[in-house]
Every structure is written in C-alpha cells, then in structure tokens.
Amino acid sequence: MNTHQFQVPDLSCGHCVAAVTRALQALHPMVQVQADPATKAVQVQAPAALSAEQLAATLREAGYPPA
C-alpha cells in the first residue's frame, strides 16, 4: 500500500468527504481515505497498482480537483 496526500480546496463539508471517499474507493476495494474539510487534506492509502495521477484524475472527475 502506498500513501498519497492531496490538498483539495473544494473539500468543505461532510458531503464532500463522502463523495471523495466513494469516488476513490470505487477504484479498488482496498483504498482507504481520510479527508478533513478543515484542512482541505485528503490522505489516500492505495495499492501500488494505483498511481497518484490515477487518484488525482478520479478526484477531478468527482468534481474535487486537487491543488
């Protein structure tokens, strides 16, 4: 498992956290997401098969582009 950190300026509430978590977990069942609207930080633990760019692209597609 690799850990990736993203700053997501549009992350502002619990709904946003749920949407980001759902989108990222759809990539792989072992993906773990910790998102904090107060700091706009998203930490993702994902299998090595998923690259940071794939995760960032998923965030963009979900409407939460990383900075």
Rank of each mutant, 00 (worst) to 15 (best):
Leu24Gly: 06
Leu24Met: 08
Leu24Cys: 07
Leu24Glu: 12
Leu24Asp: 04
Gln25Gly: 08
Gln25Ile: 02
Gln25Ala: 07
Ala26Tyr: 04
Ala26His: 12
Ala26Phe: 09
Ala26Lys: 03
Ala26Asp: 15
Ala26Leu: 08
Leu27Ala: 09
Leu27Arg: 10
Leu27Tyr: 05
Leu27Phe: 13
Leu27Lys: 06
Leu27Asn: 04
His28Cys: 01
His28Tyr: 01
His28Lys: 01
Pro29Val: 02
Pro29Thr: 01
Pro29Trp: 00
Pro29Phe: 00
Met30Cys: 10
Met30Thr: 15
Met30Tyr: 08
Val31Leu: 13
Val31Gly: 11
Val31Gln: 14
Val31Trp: 14
Gln32Tyr: 13
Gln32Leu: 14
Gln32Arg: 15
Gln32Ser: 12
Val33Gly: 02
Val33Met: 05
Val33Leu: 01
Val33Gln: 05
Gln34Thr: 11
Gln34Phe: 02
Gln34Glu: 15
Ala35Glu: 05
Ala35Pro: 02
Asp36Cys: 11
Asp36Asn: 15
Asp36Trp: 13
Asp36Leu: 10
Asp36Ala: 14
Pro37Met: 14
Ala38Met: 06
Ala38Gln: 12
Ala38Cys: 03
Ala38Leu: 06
Ala38Arg: 10
Thr39Cys: 02
Thr39Lys: 01
Thr39Asp: 05
Thr39Gly: 04
Lys40Thr: 11
Lys40His: 15
Ala41Ser: 12
Ala41Pro: 01
Ala41His: 14
Ala41Met: 12
Ala41Thr: 14
Val42Asp: 05
Val42Tyr: 03
Val42Trp: 03
Val42Thr: 06
Val42Glu: 09
Gln43Asp: 11
Gln43Ser: 15
Gln43Glu: 15
Gln43Tyr: 03
Gln43His: 15
Val44Cys: 08
Val44Leu: 12
Val44Gly: 12
Val44Trp: 10
Val44Ala: 05
Gln45Val: 13
Gln45Pro: 04
Gln45Cys: 03
Gln45Asp: 15
Ala46Pro: 02
Ala46Thr: 08
Ala46Met: 06
Ala46Trp: 13
Ala46Asp: 10
Pro47Thr: 09
Pro47Phe: 09
Ala48Thr: 14
Ala48Val: 14
Ala48Lys: 12
Ala48Trp: 11
Ala49Asn: 10
Ala49Leu: 09
Ala49Met: 12
Ala49Tyr: 02
Leu50Ala: 09
Leu50Arg: 03
Leu50Val: 06
Ser51Glu: 11
Ser51Phe: 15
Ser51Trp: 14
Ser51Met: 06
Ser51Pro: 06
Ser51Leu: 10
Ser51Gly: 10
Ala52Gln: 13
Ala52Leu: 03
Ala52Phe: 00
Glu53Phe: 09
Glu53Gln: 15
Glu53Tyr: 09
Glu53Asp: 15
Glu53Val: 13
Gln54Trp: 04
Gln54Lys: 01
Gln54Gly: 01
Gln54Pro: 00
Leu55His: 09
Leu55Ile: 07
Leu55Phe: 14
Leu55Met: 07
Leu55Arg: 06
Leu55Gln: 07
Leu55Tyr: 11
Ala56Trp: 11
Ala56Gly: 08
Ala56Phe: 05
Ala56Glu: 07
Ala57Gly: 13
Ala57Leu: 04
Ala57Phe: 08
Ala57Ile: 01
Ala57His: 12
Ala57Met: 09
Thr58Asp: 02
Thr58Met: 01
Thr58Cys: 06
Thr58Trp: 03
Leu59Asn: 08
Leu59Trp: 07
Leu59Met: 07
Leu59Ile: 04
Arg60Leu: 00
Arg60Ser: 00
Arg60Phe: 00
Arg60Asp: 00
Arg60Tyr: 02
Arg60Gln: 05
Arg60Val: 05
Glu61Ile: 00
